[in-house]
Amino acid sequence: MGLLSELKVSVPWGHIAAKVWGSPQGPPVLCLHGWLDNANSFDRLLPLLPPSFHYVAMDFGGHGLSSHHHPGFPYQPQNYVNEVRRVAAALKWNRFSLLGHSFGGTIGGMFSCIFPELVDKLILLDSSPFFLESKEIKNLPTYKRQSIEHVLLVEAKDKPPKVLSPEEMLQSFLKNNTQVGEECGKLLLERGTTRVAQGLVLNRDRRLSQPENHFEVLSKDQFEYICKKIQARILVVKADQGYSYFRPIKDDEIRESMDYILQFLKSTLKERFQYMEVVGNHYVHMREPQHVAGVISDFLQSNP
């Protein structure tokens, strides 16, 4: 299955860019990339999935080839849920599946609760559909403050994008993405940079700072209530060497929280919930896509 086309969806602040794969007549699947990644995140996985489906891999706003959001405001999780809804509306999709990696899976989880009637299946690649951390409550005002102050700092500096040689750009990228690997790093930078006379500049919006400044953290009561709204079937694919992308929280706290989320999803969704652990790190869907392609294909093709 090869790439069919590039796509641009018009929005009030510019456009949302996307890549299209598979059969235009097939059941639609919207692919959501991780924090600071882009639609190229799925280039090595989608060719291994059933070609009878219609896959659209979008760039979130401020990422890849999508327009940056209006100046003056920080990015918020609901901005991205809004983008998913706009893409689905533009494509005239009444019901579709979501395939999300990391941050993209969390946005997919939020969307599945807010628009439950639209989502058929939700596939989470080394991701959590929610962040449930009671111990993080004390940090939330700090995160929200940092998000606003970072925007003000970026505006005050008003510097042009930093220009690096291709090798400097790659090494800088790998330093901040230790699990992605050189080959996959190059693939993400193909869509995540623009070539200028002196070298490469990053495409992404400089207002995008630490992910913890942009995640919504739910209480147990909130989580349990909105989970009951989900109509989709859910597949969670966990990498055995994956890492926590919500970095301030300690590993034991993450495991405790994730175990609670998975157990509640299992008990609430029953036969609509499936869990699989695979060998690989956080970017297993890029580095060893064959480790996840089979279970994803089976899940997409399965009937209730």
Results as ranks from 00 to 15, higher is better:
2 G>M: 11
4 L>K: 15
4 L>D: 06
5 S>A: 15
7 L>K: 09
14 G>M: 09
19 K>N: 02
21 W>G: 01
21 W>M: 02
27 P>I: 12
27 P>T: 13
30 L>I: 14
33 H>D: 04
34 G>K: 07
38 N>G: 02
38 N>H: 05
39 A>Q: 03
43 D>P: 01
51 P>Q: 10
54 H>L: 13
56 V>T: 14
59 D>R: 08
60 F>P: 05
63 H>K: 05
65 L>D: 10
66 S>D: 10
75 Y>A: 10
75 Y>C: 08
76 Q>P: 03
77 P>S: 13
78 Q>I: 08
79 N>L: 11
82 N>L: 08
87 V>H: 02
90 A>E: 02
93 W>H: 06
96 F>G: 11
96 F>M: 14
101 H>L: 01
102 S>R: 08
103 F>S: 07
106 T>L: 04
106 T>D: 00
107 I>Y: 06
110 M>P: 05
111 F>Y: 15
111 F>K: 13
114 I>T: 15
114 I>F: 12
114 I>R: 14
117 E>H: 14
117 E>W: 09
121 K>F: 07
122 L>Y: 05
122 L>F: 04
123 I>V: 10
124 L>D: 00
126 D>A: 08
127 S>Y: 00
129 P>I: 03
130 F>M: 03
130 F>K: 01
134 S>P: 09
134 S>D: 09
134 S>H: 07
135 K>S: 14
138 K>E: 03
141 P>F: 01
141 P>K: 03
144 K>Q: 09
144 K>L: 08
147 S>I: 00
147 S>N: 14
147 S>W: 00
149 E>I: 06
154 V>F: 05
154 V>P: 07
156 A>N: 08
157 K>S: 02
162 K>G: 00
169 M>C: 15
170 L>E: 13
171 Q>W: 06
172 S>R: 15
175 K>M: 13
176 N>T: 11
176 N>L: 09
177 N>F: 10
179 Q>R: 12
181 G>K: 05
184 C>K: 08
184 C>G: 03
184 C>Q: 12
187 L>T: 13
188 L>T: 07
188 L>M: 12
190 E>R: 13
190 E>T: 13
191 R>G: 11
194 T>H: 06
201 V>S: 01
202 L>H: 11
203 N>R: 14
211 P>W: 06
214 H>E: 11
216 E>V: 10
216 E>I: 03
219 S>G: 07
220 K>H: 05
220 K>T: 08
221 D>V: 15
222 Q>H: 09
224 E>R: 09
228 K>I: 05
228 K>E: 15
230 I>D: 07
235 L>D: 02
241 Q>A: 13
246 F>K: 00
250 K>I: 01
250 K>P: 01
255 R>T: 13
260 Y>V: 09
261 I>T: 14
261 I>C: 12
261 I>G: 09
261 I>F: 06
265 L>Q: 06
266 K>Y: 04
266 K>F: 05
270 K>C: 03
270 K>W: 01
271 E>R: 08
272 R>L: 02
274 Q>Y: 10
274 Q>I: 00
277 E>F: 04
278 V>Y: 03
279 V>R: 13
280 G>R: 08
280 G>D: 09
281 N>T: 13
281 N>K: 09
282 H>R: 14
286 M>G: 02
287 R>F: 03
289 P>R: 03
292 V>A: 05
294 G>T: 11
299 F>P: 04
300 L>M: 06
302 S>P: 00
303 N>M: 07
304 P>W: 07
